[in-house]
């Protein structure tokens, strides 16, 4: 699936300029410039330790950045929170938490309800729809700890859907999920794109990049390549990103 119009440059959902992040052990990201096209699905690809998750977290103000400016739909992220939905890595939370699937999805409505606002019938319906859209309607009252990894990931995606955002930022949405979940998630993401919404996802499985995504950002502490999958996702850029040791066979 090649972006038919690599030029002129499409409107940007998110632009990052000169982003540098350093942990105590040293710099993780160095002078990253990137722009994520609106209405497109972009994969962030790179080896372990390349700073993929860090890039997302620093862009969304979840961790401190040393330098850099991030704009979302042309404005600073702080002004645009309502239009962004973030899906963290599934492993980042304690799934033993006392909550049902629907409770987690309703957390996505916080932007509407605030701390004390009432959860109206309309809002409840929106959460139920989001859960149905990921194929989990039957599991609404199930304890999240009793769900499989794939089901938990779907609940996370449903929470993002309930936010009704225009930009979806996902950290490894396919990590450790079953094939059915992967298919379901891809279908939902593609339907979001069809609605004109934008998706950015950290992705590990190089083999599925061309099938799932329009654009790709190749990252290894710096940006190696960026653009439509057809032109930016090549043996040359892969070699430059991963060095000589490719993690798996990639379609040429």
């Amino acid at each position: 699936m090649v972006d038919p119009t690599p030029f002129p440059i499409p409107e940007a959902a998110m632009t990052i300029r000169d982003l540098t992040v350093a942990y105590q052990e040293g710099r993780v990201l160095e002078g990253v410039d990137a722009r994520f096209a609106a209405g497109a699905m972009t994969a962030i690809v790179g080896p372990n330790g390349a700073g993929k998750s860090t890039l997302l977290k620093a862009s969304l103000d979840l961790i401190a950045r040393r330098t850099g400016e991030v704009r979302v739909f042309g404005a600073p992220f702080a002004n645009m929170r309502q239009r962004v939905a973030y899906v963290p890595q599934r492993a980042a939370v304690d799934w033993d938490f006392p909550a049902r699937a629907i409770d987690v999805v309703q957390m996505g409505l916080y932007g509407e309800t605030g701390a004390l606002g009432r959860l109206t019938g309309g809002l409840r319906a929106r959460a139920a729809d989001a859960l149905a859209r990921v194929g989990m309607a039957d599991f609404a009252k199930r304890q999240i700890g009793a769900l499989s990894g794939g089901q938990q990931q779907r609940v996370f995606l449903a929470r993002a859907l309930a936010q009704g955002a225009d930009l979806y930022v996902l950290d490894e949405p396919f990590a450790g999920v079953d094939a059915a979940t992967e298919t379901a998630i891809v279908a939902v993401l593609h339907s979001l794109r069809a609605e004109g919404r934008s998706v950015i996802a950290v992705h590990h499985d190089l083999a599925t990049v061309p099938a799932y995504f329009d654009r790709v950002l190749m990252l290894n502490r710096r940006v190696i390549a960026e653009g439509p999958v057809g032109t930016a996702f090549t043996q040359t850029t892969l070699a430059a990103t991963y060095g000589t040791a490719l993690p798996q066979k990639v379609p040429a």
């Binding site: 977290k57 979840l62 980042a92 916080y110």
Partner: peptide, 15 residues
């Protein structure tokens, strides 16, 4: 509850 369950998400929505 939100921050206790998922701090990253809570931050992302501005809590």
């Amino acid at each position: 509850i939100l921050t206790s369950f998922d701090e990253g998400f809570a931050r992302s929505i501005g809590l």
